[in-house]
Design a protein around this nucleic acid. Structure first.
Length: 233
DNA sequence: GAGTGATCATAG
DNA sequence: CTATGATCACTC
């Protein structure tokens, strides 16, 4: 039932969890609920599809778990160093979409190291929340799966680091226009903007500033599939 | 059908 | 515009 007419935006939100355990505890209570049921608890309406509200699921979970809403370039739960990511899955538990990591800066990148990069920081600790993402099911009926904590390390970190360095090298060399989503085995760079007319500064072939479409880093499905498989099997 | 490139909403 | 939350939708 979709009867929220006011949908008053609350200016107050839940307090953020004070520990990872508390976050996991809260998150585990959501497993098994449908998005419709959680939306009712949080008193927000559910869209009939995500054509015009693509980030709706993620924002619902932020609300339910007490993440700071907003667009700060930091982890969702900065006090405990955890990032929240919802991930749409099919009936086999495989990812249906790539996963956005962070915005990519295309200038002033000299001296940026992997260890202190935005990608590394964002993925240090992630609370993954699988959600049924089948498009033939209305969002309200889609079920929330079992949330789990994951850390970027070992072989997985090495893979992402390699992709990141390859892409960043191209950007630094003024080859941003040569970078396509086909680069990177496990992490790719793709446009990230409100529309095709958005432009931002980047490094040109002769070191000058050029204008190009804003980009973001995304995890390929093969990478997140492994994360899910490692946890659930 | 999969994957790349494009796009939607919102906050600051 | 930057940056967050992502999924859409067209092309291959």
């Amino acid at each position: 039932m979709v009867t929220n007419s006011s949908n008053t935006k609350s200016t107050t939100h839940k307090p953020a969890p004070n520990s990872v355990d508390e976050l996991l505890e809260r998150a585990s209570l959501l497993a098994g609920l449908t998005l419709g049921e959680l939306a009712q608890i949080e008193n927000i309406r559910v869209p009939d599809d995500f054509k015009r509200e693509k980030g709706w699921s993620g924002q619902l979970l932020e609300l339910a778990l007490g993440a700071q809403a907003g667009s700060k370039a930091q982890q969702d739960f900065a006090n405990i160093g955890v990032e929240l990511k919802t991930i749409p899955i099919d009936t086999n538990g495989n990812p249906l979409e790539t996963t956005y990591v962070c915005y990519a800066h295309l200038t002033d990148i000299a001296g940026i190291q992997w260890a202190t990069s935005s990608v590394r920081n964002k993925l240090n600790k992630v609370l993954w929340v699988p959600i049924d993402g089948r498009r033939d099911i209305p969002p309200a009926e889609r079920c929330i799966g079992t949330p789990f904590l994951w850390s970027l390390q070992g072989e997985q970190e090495a893979y992402l680091r390699q992709d990141w360095e390859e892409i960043m090298d191209m950007i630094a060399m003024g080859d941003i226009e040569k970078v396509t989503a086909r680069h990177g085995e496990f992490m790719q760079l793709r446009p990230k903007a409100a529309n095709g007319s958005a432009l931002t500064d980047a490094i040109g072939k002769n070191g000058q500033i050029i204008q190009t479409r804003p980009r973001g880093f995304y995890l390929r499905k093969e990478f997140t599939r492994k994360i899910l498989r490692d946890y659930f099997s």
